[in-house]
Structures are given as structure tokens and as C-alpha cells.
Design a protein around this nucleic acid. Structure first.
Lengths: 193, 193
DNA sequence: CCAATTACTGAGTGAGCGCTCAGTCAGTGT
DNA sequence: ACACTGACTGAGCGCTCACTCAGTAATTGG
């Protein structure tokens, strides 16, 4: 692995676990064995380093979902929803540091003044909510789901799943124990009575 | 209003909107007209100032819910749940800066090493989830809600409502437009079919 | 083989931070 | 009048931080 990739990986972990402000260049330097000057050489500034991380996260999340759905068919919208929730949680476990970073405030604060940052965050957010929405639209078409506002309900669904990831990240409760209850709740919420 | 209260209020706003690290003592000083020495005089340190804010938030949130439920009766668990969700969102609007601060990571990071901080956060969290749980237990007793795990479902409910507050805080979507969809989703999720 | 380019280094810089402390000042009890 | 107390001040201290820059090492292409 190249030194640049090393830095990106270590910085992702530090930004995710300590926050942008508390993660220092010297700490990234120590963790990677690269001099502080090397970090700046590759990424220009600490803020640009964060942007590179977010760009990387965006690319990977979109790729992973595309790969997952490639040639896949679902017996119903309701079962697609279950699949999507499962895969979302699986991905949040695989890319735990990126998802943790995306749950912090700083990227969204930066997005207020930095259009590039805003672009990455919106792309990720839209990718995720779009997938929930697609499952709902399918479910409403095949009659497995009741009639409600697809986009708004997709956002509520997103909140529920994101909340479980948050519980896991904060260690507030055994998230695994909540998984089956979450799926059951989603089913009750969406299904055609 | 005393200078100490002024500082507490200004610091709450700054910690909520900028984050603990990016909010500086000199900024709090400028906003309140109090010298930096005065802030330290009243609160000992920046961290102690945050703790005072969290203690204040804890006290007020618990008080407000106690006041709200004083002598109140509900026709069913399902309608109590609606009332609770409404009041939660109302309170999150009234105390927007405290709720925003409680959605940041830093307080939970501090809680890892500071037992006092942990105590305040747990008290707030338990207060909120307990109220959802009470509504569910009532609903299951009076038959308006289906049979599921009360505590776990209360946590999922909490996630949903908390997510809507987050949407509002991040300005990602008009949260008001989501309110009626949220209530409807909760009803479908909880009601006895 | 040797420029030329790219990758990397780390001591040094200056800005900004939380906090200190010697001191002012208004209010209160005697 | 005086002593005492608690609220408040702000220049200054020590420290940490992101970033600079002059220089070195490695890689590449003619």
C-alpha cells in the first residue's frame, strides 16, 4: 500500500473516532510513519485531507450498492426492503469508520461553506434514501406495501436504520439485539394491512 | 439576568452550533461582554462549563416532561404515544440548542472518561426512552398496540423521532413536512392489526 | 549516466488556544 | 471610616497546533 493510502486510512480512523478537531496531524504522522510534511505534500491541508476521505467514502458506498443490486431481483417490495436494510447494516459494519465519520457534525458544518463537501454528502445521502424509496415504490406497485408518501417514508426508514448504527457506534445498547426488532417494526410500518 | 447565566446561555449556543473545540473562550467572552477570566471564575474550566450546561439540560428536560404529564390521562396507549411524540418535538424546538448539543459527539466522548458527564447523559436518555416505553406498555395493556418487545421498540421509536430532529438541525429537509408522515408511520408500526 | 521530476523529511514558525494571576471595584457589616 | 468579601478584569504565559520550507532521497526517461 502506498504512503498516500496509508495516510488516508489512518486519518479516516482518527477523524471518525476522535473528531476532526481533536485528530492532529502529528498523530496521523505517528500512526503512519510519514512525516507531517508528507501529509501536507499529498493533501495540501487538513481540510483537503477530510475532503479526500469523503470523496473516497462516496465512491465506495455508491459502488458497493451498485455491485449488490447488479442482476438482483426481489420477490416483493417488502422483501427488497428487508434486503436493503440488511445490506445497509452489513456495509455500515464493513465501512464502520466511514459511517462513523458521516455521523459526526463537522462534515455537515463544512458543507455549509464548501460546495465540494456538500456535493459528496448529498451524493451519499441521496444514494441511500433513493434505495429505500425504490423498495417502497416496488412494494406499492406489487401491493405488498400500503399507500403512503414514498420519499418521506424512505427518509423515516433511513432514520430508523441510521439510528441503529448510531446505537452501535455509541455502544449504548447491543445493536445486534435490536436488529430483528427493527426488521419487524419496518414490516409492520410498511405492509399492506 | 446574571452574568453567570449569560455565559451559560451563550456557551450553550456556541457549543451547539460550532462544537466544543471550535467554540473558544474569547468568543464566549465577546458574546457576553464578560472577560475570559470571569468565565473561568464561575466555571473553573471550559470542560466544567460544558458539564454545567449538560446538568442544566438534564434538569430542564426531566422537569418539562414531569410538568407535561402531571395529572394527564390518555384515552389509549396509541394516543399517548402521539402526544409524547408531539411534545418531544415541541420541546426539541423550544430547547433547540440543548438538543443540538446532545446530538453532537463530544459529550458522549467526554462521558467515556467523566462519570459526571455520563450520569447526565444517561439520565436524559433514560427519561426519553422510558416515556416511549410507558406509552407502549399502556398500549399493550389496553389492546391498542400489538405485542412486541416494549423497551426495544421504544428505542426504535426514539430513533425515529430523534432522526426527525436531526433532519431539522441539519436543514436537510423541511422537518415540518415530515411530521404527519412520522406520526402515521408510528401508528402503523405500533397498532394492533 | 545524468538531469529532471517526484516523493519525502522534520526542525522551525507564528497564530491561537485555555488558563493564570495580580489587581480593581462595588457592596456589606461593624 | 474601615476591613472584608465576592465579582470581575485582561495582559500575559506556556503550550499545541497546522503548515512552511530548505533540503535529501528515490524514481523516471532520454
Amino acid at each position: 500500500m502506498s504512503k498516500k493510502e496509508d495516510i488516508l486510512k489512518a486519518a479516516t480512523a482518527l477523524f471518525a473516532h476522535k473528531g476532526f478537531q481533536f485528530a492532529t496531524m502529528s498523530e496521523i504522522s505517528k500512526l503512519t510513519g510519514a512525516a507531517e510534511g508528507t501529509i501536507i505534500y499529498h493533501f495540501k491541508s487538513k481540510e483537503q485531507l477530510l475532503l479526500a476521505i469523503l470523496k473516497d467514502a462516496k465512491t465506495r458506498i455508491i459502488e458497493e450498492f451498485e455491485k449488490y443490486f447488479e442482476g438482483k431481483t426481489f420477490e416483493s417490495g417488502l422483501s427488497m426492503m428487508e434486503d436493503v436494510v440488511s445490506f445497509y447494516l452489513y456495509l455500515a459494519g464493513m465501512m464502520d469508520e466511514q459511517f462513523l465519520l458521516l455521523q459526526r457534525h463537522y462534515p455537515y458544518q463544512l458543507a455549509d461553506t464548501n460546495p465540494e463537501c456538500r456535493e459528496y454528502l448529498e451524493a451519499i445521502y441521496n444514494c441511500l434514501v433513493d434505495i429505500f424509496e425504490k423498495a417502497i415504490l416496488l412494494g406499492q406497485a406489487d401491493g405488498s406495501m400500503a399507500d403512503f408518501h414514498p420519499r418521506k417514508t424512505a427518509m423515516i426508514l433511513f432514520s430508523m436504520v441510521d439510528g441503529l448504527v448510531r446505537f452501535k457506534n455509541y455502544n449504548l445498547y447491543d445493536a445486534g439485539a435490536l436488529y430483528s426488532e427493527l426488521i419487524a417494526s419496518c414490516r409492520r410500518m410498511l405492509r399492506n394491512a
